Simulated scan of single mutants.
Amino acid sequence: MYPTPPSQPKKVKCKNINHPLCYASEHVCPAPCPSQCDVDCVTCKPVCKCDMPGAVCQDPRFVGGDGITFYFHGTMDKDFCLVTDNNLHINGHFIGKRNKNMHRDFTWVQSIGVLFDKHKLLISAENTSSWDDVVDRLSVTFDGRSIVLPETVGSNWQSSTTSITRIRDTNDIVVEVERLFKITAKVVPITKEESRIHNYGITDDDCFAHLDLKFKFFSLSTEVDGVLGQTYRNDYVSKVKMGVLMPLMGGDRKFKSPNLFATNCPVTKFKGNHGEDSSLNLQLPSLRCQSGWNGLGVMCKR
């Protein structure tokens, strides 16, 4: 069920030529994210993607546009508005487990539904019990069409508006719409160590594969809202209690959405024209997979 940690940390380089003192310099990813990080070319240091503004990772841990880290737990098996603006709307579907000793669910973001112009983009982590990095558990649909990319770094699909590219052979893509957004989405499991530390109680039935996300926005308005979106407003003042171990963001009720492609959450700003089917509750991919640790085979059932 659990993944094998990488034997050697990944090495990354600064790719921004506007920082000549750091450009092309090589850095080793830090211990918290040995297999995936970026170089902050300003400080010339490696940084975990989940520690950068626009990140949504783990249980779910957000890093706002203001740089402040907070947690928003939501509710398992429910959908919440992450970003809503006049030309962009992003909902997240939360999966989770109930802890009988707590008054909340352990939750993770399993899928996101993205609406822009007249388009619908769905990015999902497929349900699986056993985890192997070489088996792809990432599902993408664009306007209802399943997008299948060859399992090779650099594989790309493009439409007139959208580019989808693999940045690893499996489970890791970047989606970009020019002048609107760039989303990096990686499917990750709950590891044995994470389950032990946080008392998640993960069993062999489900490793709770979910998405680690990194958002970059290019044209947000001053009215943007949503769990993450509100933190990009110039007048936004963080409501989370600082200086505590887990600063929590409330407001579950005002961010709750009927489904992944609904645009009628209480804080909605979206003005896109999607017709009468904009609130259709699309069925999420659900696969049960078993694979050996050596990655030689996989069998999945819907």
Rank of each mutant, 00 (worst) to 15 (best):
T161E: 15
T162Q: 15
T162Y: 08
S163P: 00
I164Q: 01
T165F: 03
I167W: 03
R168W: 05
D169K: 09
T170Y: 01
I173G: 00
I173T: 01
E178Y: 05
R179N: 15
L180K: 14
F181S: 06
T184S: 09
K186W: 07
K186A: 14
V188Q: 08
V188E: 11
V188L: 03
P189V: 11
P189L: 10
I190Q: 14
E193V: 11
E194T: 02
E194F: 02
S195F: 06
S195N: 09
S195L: 03
S195R: 02
R196T: 08
R196K: 15
H198W: 05
Y200K: 09
G201I: 10
T203G: 03
D204G: 06
D205I: 01
F208R: 13
A209H: 01
L211S: 09
D212P: 00
F215G: 00
F215K: 02
K216P: 04
F218D: 14
F218V: 11
S219A: 14
L220S: 12
S221T: 15
T222V: 11
E223R: 15
D225M: 04
G226V: 03
G226D: 13
L228D: 13
G229T: 00
T231D: 10
N234Y: 00
N234Q: 09
D235S: 07
D235C: 01
S238R: 01
K239W: 07
V240E: 10
M242Y: 13
M242R: 04
G243M: 09
V244N: 06
L245I: 11
L248K: 03
M249F: 10
G251Y: 04
D252F: 11
D252C: 15
R253Q: 03
F255W: 09
F255A: 08
S257G: 00
S257T: 08
P258R: 02
N259G: 13
L260P: 01
F261M: 01
F261H: 02
F261N: 06
A262H: 13
T263E: 02
N264Q: 08
C265E: 12
C265M: 05
P266Y: 00
P266V: 02
P266T: 00
V267S: 14
V267G: 13
T268Q: 03
K269M: 13
K269N: 10
F270R: 10
F270N: 13
N273W: 00
H274S: 02
G275T: 01
G275S: 05
E276Y: 01
E276Q: 04
D277I: 04
D277L: 08
S278Q: 07
S279T: 10
S279F: 15
N281A: 14
N281E: 13
N281M: 08
L282N: 13
Q283T: 12
P285T: 11
S286Q: 14
R288T: 08
S291H: 14
N294G: 08
G295E: 00
L296Y: 02
G297Q: 03
V298P: 00
M299Y: 06
M299T: 12
M299N: 10
